[in-house]
Design a protein around this nucleic acid. Sequence first.
DNA 1: GCATTAAGGTCAATATATTGACATAAATAA
DNA 2: TTATTTATGTCAATATATTGACCTTAATGC
Lengths: 152, 152
Amino acid sequence: MSKKNIELDEIHSRLIFRLFQTSNVMHRSGTLALNSVGVTSQQWSVLGALSRPKVEAGMTVNDMCRYLMVSRQSLSLMLNRLEAVGYVKRIQDKRDQRSKRIVLTESGREALNEINHLMQVFFEKVMKGLSRDDQISCVHYLTRLRDNMSID
Amino acid sequence: MSKKNIELDEIHSRLIFRLFQTSNVMHRSGTLALNSVGVTSQQWSVLGALSRPKVEAGMTVNDMCRYLMVSRQSLSLMLNRLEAVGYVKRIQDKRDQRSKRIVLTESGREALNEINHLMQVFFEKVMKGLSRDDQISCVHYLTRLRDNMSID
DNA sequence: GCATTAAGGTCAATATATTGACATAAATAA
DNA sequence: TTATTTATGTCAATATATTGACCTTAATGC
C-alpha cells in the first residue's frame, strides 16, 4: 500500500543544502557589507553586470535577465530602484526601437567604485583558506551545477 | 579628488556571481520539480531538516533558524504554511515551557517520501558530470565559503 | 522574590523571487 | 499589408528574505 521509503544519497542532499545555506548567508552578509552605500547584494549584481568592458554600450533587459538568471519582473523592480537613485538609466536602442539599453550613469560608476572597495575587503574574508586553484575548481563545480539545474 | 578605480580580482567576482546564479536557478527548478507536491524548495529544506534521525524528537524554532540560516521571522511564516497543510506540528517542549518543538506529522512524512522520489530524479540530473569526489570537494568549498561569510 | 534573559509569535516596512496575464509598440514573416 | 513575434512594462498573487520592534511567557540569576 505504501511506497518503499526513499533514502536520498547523503552527499547529494548535503551539497544542495550547503548551497541553500551559503546563498542565504551570502545575501545577508553581502548586503550588510554594502550597508554604507545603501545597495543590496542583488543590486550589486546588476551594477557589476553593467561594469564589464564588453557591455560599454549597455545591456538589454532580456540579456540581463538571462545573465543574472532572474525573471523580467524581478529585474524590472531592481532596475526601477536603481534608476530612482540614479545609478542606472534606460536608454532607447537606436537600431531596435522596442529595446532599451540599461547603462551605468556616472553616479552609478562612482557608487560601484565605492562598492568595489567594500567588496575587496569582503572577498578577502570570504576566500580565506581557499587557494586560487580551489577557487577555480569551485567556479567549475558551480557552473556545472548551474547548467545542470537550468530548465533549458 | 577621486579615489583610484578598484579592479576586483576576477576569480573572486566570478565565484560570488556563480553562487548568485546557481542559487537562483536552484530555487526555481527545485520548486518546479516539487510542483506536483505543492511544496517550495525552501519548505523542502524545513521538512528535510526534520527528517534526520537525530531530530526524531523535533527541533526548536531557534535551532532550526541556526540550521537553515534564516531569520526567525522568515522561518515562522514557512512553519505557518507547513502547519496549515498539516505537514508539521508545533508541540510544547516538556522540559522548557517556553520552547516549542517542531515535528513532522505522519502526513508530512508521507509527503516527504513523495518529495524524495522527485528529488532523487532531480539530483541525478543535477549531479551529472560530477564524480563523488567532485561532490565532496564542492561541499567542502561551500562549507568554507559559508563559514567565512557568516557574521559570527 | 525580583530583575534579567531567553523563546517564540507577530506586525511593519522593504527587497527579492516566482508565474500568469495583459498592454503597447516595433520588428519581422507570410 | 497583415499577422505574428519580440521587447518591455506593469499588475496581481504568492513565497521568501531581511531588520526592528513589541508582546507574552517562562526560565534563570542574584
